[in-house]
Design a binder for these strands. Sequence first.
DNA 1: AACCATTAGTTCATAATATGAACCGAATGT
DNA 2: ACATTCGGTTCATATTATGAACTAATGGTT
Lengths: 209, 209
Amino acid sequence: MRTPAGVPTSKPYAGTQSVRRAIALLKVFSEERPEWGLSELARAARLNKTTAYRLLTALEAEGMVTRSSLTDAWRLGNGAIAMGALALRSNDLMTAARPELEALVRETGETASLEVLVGDEIVILDGIEGPSLVGASSEVGTRWPAHATSTGKVLLAAEGGPASAGRRPRRLRKLTSRTITDPARLERELDRVRARGWATAVEELENGY
Amino acid sequence: MRTPAGVPTSKPYAGTQSVRRAIALLKVFSEERPEWGLSELARAARLNKTTAYRLLTALEAEGMVTRSSLTDAWRLGNGAIAMGALALRSNDLMTAARPELEALVRETGETASLEVLVGDEIVILDGIEGPSLVGASSEVGTRWPAHATSTGKVLLAAEGGPASAGRRPRRLRKLTSRTITDPARLERELDRVRARGWATAVEELENGY
DNA sequence: AACCATTAGTTCATAATATGAACCGAATGT
DNA sequence: ACATTCGGTTCATATTATGAACTAATGGTT
């Protein structure tokens, strides 16, 4: 055991770090890249290949990852699905928010969604389609960079006031020409959001939305 | 580090075992009991309290578990939701099976569902409600003991032929008076399933179904 | 109020366990 | 034929995970 490395760069070791490394590994999987070879995956998670291999083996044994039978590349497994679905259903917020969502849709005629902040992304927990034409269909479980969505801005703004600007998304990904990528500009935007209590995002996430 | 213990009882250590322990911990959470105190949780996972605590801390840092702000009990976190949703969407089977499901519903008029085996449980990946009265509503993500469901029997039967009887569910939980709990009887049932190509489960999972 | 039995969380000595460099053989590309 | 990749394994090393034994707080029972 020589170098520390790996895992979201935080100074104090919070809990067992092989576990943190394992989860870091899981977080490498994404919509765009759901399948990974060992070496690549290890590199992406900034882990030693051997270490990554052993972690993956453990995760595989528990069903959290599987291997595509052809490519024999690593993917998220069915265990992850089961766990996520359980987490979703045992989330109080979900059940508490449902009536609110329904009321919102009734009052505004727009699509309403329940979203939470996970790291620097928002996750759509629930959504009800309104009759309006405007509504983007909100797929439950979808993740988006928080800084490029209206709801994300609200959640970022709410999160512990202006002080917490320090631990913002490391790099603000540019998704369209209008995405806010300058940290200072984002901070100003968040101040505005805090002041008026709502946020917008126009063509900052996808062109046309 | 004195005793091995914890984790699904398997002899050869497959990969990093603190990771396996962490996942074992996550698997303790269930529909019926989504919230756990530290001591209870540790006991349920057959882990030392201190160990469980450290593992949980790591999982918390990565968003896989959270603490209910009031009770300050442990629950599955939003990270689990996000990961599960991603796993679900990046699952080829899902997209491949959708048309099949739709066809099934059209042809039979019954509810059709896509289920996979995860350990000794089946997980419902997808489902389409049919117009029939019989259909039990299939909630995506729900897990059931494989030996007590029709689909579960099929999957168990298919899984590597009669030889693999060795690594069957350790203990067959009795869910109703008709649940098959005797391993030998289950094996005979699976032989029958293999022979004829389909399975039934009548009141073996829940009374009335 | 004194008791007992819980709980969550911390400390600390111990060595078991996780670690990574170096290795292998197989594919693949040049 | 050569050079790089790849997935995977080995093995010596000491870092890191571990659990018994502690707090201190809480809640129930007498």
